[in-house]
Amino acid sequence: MKFSVIIDAFPYLLGAAVTTIWVSLLGVLLGQVIGVAVCVARQSGGRAADMAGGVYVSFFRGVPLLIQLLLIYYMLPLIGIDVPPLVASIAALGLASGAYVSEIYRGALNAVPHGQSEAALALGFPGSSIWTRILLPQAFRISVPALVNELILLLKASSLISVVGVAELTRTSQTISASNYRPLEIYLAAGLIYLAINGALALFGTLVERRLQQA
């Protein structure tokens, strides 16, 4: 073990960690949008929408992320969309995350008493505002812990996008250790950085949760 190796590589690793963080954040954001859309569509879009949503959820939860990533990476050019690996990666993370998020919201919606939407209907609320004013705000609140957890999971999963050459934390660690032949130190350092980010996220999640409980 040579600590100087870690110190020398640290600035590069930190820079890569920033990429990891924002790729994950964008992935989670995209996942939120997709997840909420799928959830709403499945609940109120009729049987066909529910089935399509079900297939989407089942596929993206059942197929290993690495395969999803490669699938999207190789599929986009085939259908004439030429995007850099980074964009394909974010799309893959978002699609995968969306499947889980839609299930998180479904569970949270089930926790909102049915009588509430009935009360809103009885008052003459249009369907869309029942969603935006009654259901989603509560579902969001209920699902906050699960969503922070989702961010942590995605952050770890983002290490897989190293295989399509995105220079995030894992890929950068590979590159550095291939040049200085110090994989042990470099991967240890990378692991610690992942751990630190996830620790911070978990802490943040607890704080937000406590905040929401008070409100």
């Binding site: 073990m1 942590i152 770890k156 999963a157 983002s158 290490s159 897989l160 190293s162 894992t170 660690s173 590979q174 250790s177 110090r182 994989p183 042990l184 130190e185 991967y187 240890l188 990378a190 692991g191 992942y194 751990l195 996830n198 620790g199």
Partner: peptide, 23 residues
């Protein structure tokens, strides 16, 4: 437990497979 659950599986694999020989 926290370390294993807080780091990507891929990093753990690299540590074991590529980092292992150093020790």
């Amino acid at each position: 437990i926290e370390v294993i659950r807080g780091t990507p599986f891929l990093i753990q694999l690299f540590l074991l497979y590529s980092g292992g020989p150093s020790i």
